[in-house]
Simulated scan of single mutants.
Amino acid sequence: MTSAPGLHQPPTRRRVLPAGESGSLWAARPSCGIFAFRGTRLQVMVEDPLEVLFPTDCGLSLLSALDGPGTPMLEGVNALDIGSGSGLYSIALLAAGAERVTALDVNPASATQTAANVAANGLDGARLTCVTSPLEEYVPDERFDLVITNPPHLPYDPSYARGDGLETALVARRGGRAVYDTVVDRVDGLLAPGGSLLMAHSSLADVPRTVTELTSRGYESETLAVFEMDIPLLAYAEHRETLQTRLKELRAEGRAEFDGSRFTVHALWFRRPSGSARC
């Protein structure tokens, strides 16, 4: 757990999710997952799980960490959901009172699924804007009060390249850090002074590096919670050995932390100083 000088850090909560579905953070997860966030019962549906990933516990863990005292205020914020996928975070933010949410994803199917899920939850679609674009090319009209993201975190290998929505959601180049690095590089231009970056950060993708890079630029850092769970290998069962070999290589380089088939997800809260003018 790392923080900027002078920032008080409470003890980090750690939650161990048992192996298998019985330990899931979902209240129910058939074809339509059900979860509660800040007193509201919400649901997420995915029409084609090969085009848009059904949200995993990795992504849901950040919402679980935000569902309690001492967490960021969401009412009235203008938020950017990076890698929105099925719209899990967009739904939660709108239900919690966000004024506006921009759902950004490189996958065109994400926009359709996110809008459908917002409507299915009875939320105001006029407060949602869906944008299909790589993060590197996205040029917003304004800066946001809040940026939230759960980047892909599995390392790329040509042997299991799929070129579909599942790969977009789970696999990234640069040892699984490609989207993390882009978020870190671009966050100053996306986040308003005094704003917050919320991130579900996998231990497979070098948590200390992200924390060090942002705190060195003056961001306050807080770990809201740490969740232990299974590495999502089921979708890559045929290439399990190759994927595990790549992960072991990253661990040997000090760029990944895991134990057997278990890893951790860190719910991180970065706060940009109010007086920051960096761009």
Rank of each mutant, 00 (worst) to 15 (best):
A120I: 08
C130G: 10
F270M: 02
F35S: 01
D185N: 13
A205T: 07
R41K: 15
L94P: 03
P72T: 04
A192E: 03
A119N: 11
S133N: 13
L233H: 03
L234F: 12
V187Y: 01
G39K: 11
L42A: 07
G218K: 02
E75H: 13
A116Q: 10
F270T: 04
L62K: 05
K248P: 09
G254V: 03
A237V: 11
L42E: 03
L62I: 07
D124A: 12
A27E: 15
G163E: 10
R209S: 11
G83L: 04
H201Q: 13
S261E: 15
A126T: 14
Q43P: 09
P69G: 08
G218V: 03
P30H: 15
S276A: 15
G260W: 10
A119Q: 13
A169V: 00
T40C: 13
E241D: 15
A178W: 06
L74Q: 01
L214R: 00
A172P: 03
W269L: 13
L94M: 04
A267W: 01
I231K: 06
T71F: 07
R174T: 09
L25F: 06
A237G: 11
R217T: 03
A96F: 06
L247F: 00
G23H: 02
L233V: 06
Y180H: 10
P30Q: 15
G39P: 08
A235M: 10
D57M: 03
G39I: 10
L74H: 04
A27Q: 15
D157A: 15
L166Q: 07
G125N: 08
G254P: 02
A98Q: 09
S216F: 00
C32E: 15
Y180C: 10
H153Q: 06
L135M: 09
D181R: 09
T102S: 12
A111M: 05
P155L: 02
H153E: 00
T114N: 02
S90P: 04
V147F: 08
N117T: 05
E228P: 11
L93I: 00
F54K: 12
L62T: 01
G59L: 03
P72L: 02
G83F: 05
R14A: 13
P158I: 07
E249W: 12
G122M: 12
